[in-house]
Design a protein around this nucleic acid. Structure first.
Lengths: 139, 139
DNA sequence: CTAGTTGCAAAGAGTTTGCATGGCG
DNA sequence: CGCCATGCAAACTCTTTGCAACTAG
């Protein structure tokens, strides 16, 4: 089973994402950053830890349009109550918006009752254009 | 320079996307569909034509989170807004469920009106557990 | 001790590219 | 005819996997 042990490699991958602040990193970015810090972790392990962090909901994964590799970004837990926290990712400016909204809980309920599908909010990312970018772009 | 000649291969790739209606296709889907129609175009050419169509703006390209391959979808210029087709991805069995549901359109509207966020349905994937897997796993 | 983890290298999947040939305009 | 497009296969990039050795709890 995954996510049982707390290894040094795990800590390093995690702290790498923490150091990145609100920004996202690719797996390659993480490897590069780690190498620069003197620690060299195998690529496979970086991927495995990232997967694990995503599964735990500590990190979200997404692939920006046009990019070939996946991006990983730390979820800010302060602005994110466990239960119904969704993430909105602006395709324009890249902002990651944390959203806690009853309406979405309703939708969640509907998908479960009406479609038998149990949504996993922590792992779901809604793509679109945020308010700021819509105003700027006059859309 | 690109997009000068109107070849048979170009027509076939295009008509394949037209035939798909509002739905998106991967490059592999296109190849498969063409092969089924008797015409076999090289993978490279399918990619090149898709690139060309994207460059021309006739087609959009995006990669749904969790998927490894890019999706291509015809831009319907008449019905300017994209079809409200969402995708549900089962984390258990990997099934990708296409969903067209009014409730979600409501949610979309709410996100726009209440939060200023214009969701991009084609790009968004909701993660969770599907009905079958929930029943099997007694979750 | 025992089961989860790691590193390595090799395998995979998807996509791109080099080059000679073919075909649109 | 001049170029652009095609096909093929090899190259490439990103990610996953098999397996033996290692290690946290």
């Amino acid at each position: 089973m995954r996510g049982k042990y707390n290894t040094e490699q795990r800590e390093e991958v995690l702290s790498c994402l923490v150091a990145a602040g609100g920004k996202h990193l690719t797996a390659a970015d993480v490897c590069r950053a780690l190498k620069q810090d003197g620690s060299s972790i195998s690529t496979a392990t970086v991927y495995r830890q990232l997967d694990r962090l995503v599964a735990e909901g500590a990190v979200i994964r997404f692939t920006p349009e046009g990019e070939r590799s996946a991006c990983f970004q730390l979820v800010d837990r302060e602005h994110c109550h466990r239960e119904h926290c969704y993430h909105l990712k602006c395709e324009e400016c890249g902002a990651l918006i944390h959203l806690n909204c009853n309406e979405l809980s309703e939708t969640e309920k509907h998908l479960l009752d009406g479609h038998g599908f149990a949504v996993d909010p922590g792992r779901t990312v809604l793509y679109g254009i945020c308010r700021d970018c819509r105003q700027k772009g006059a859309r």
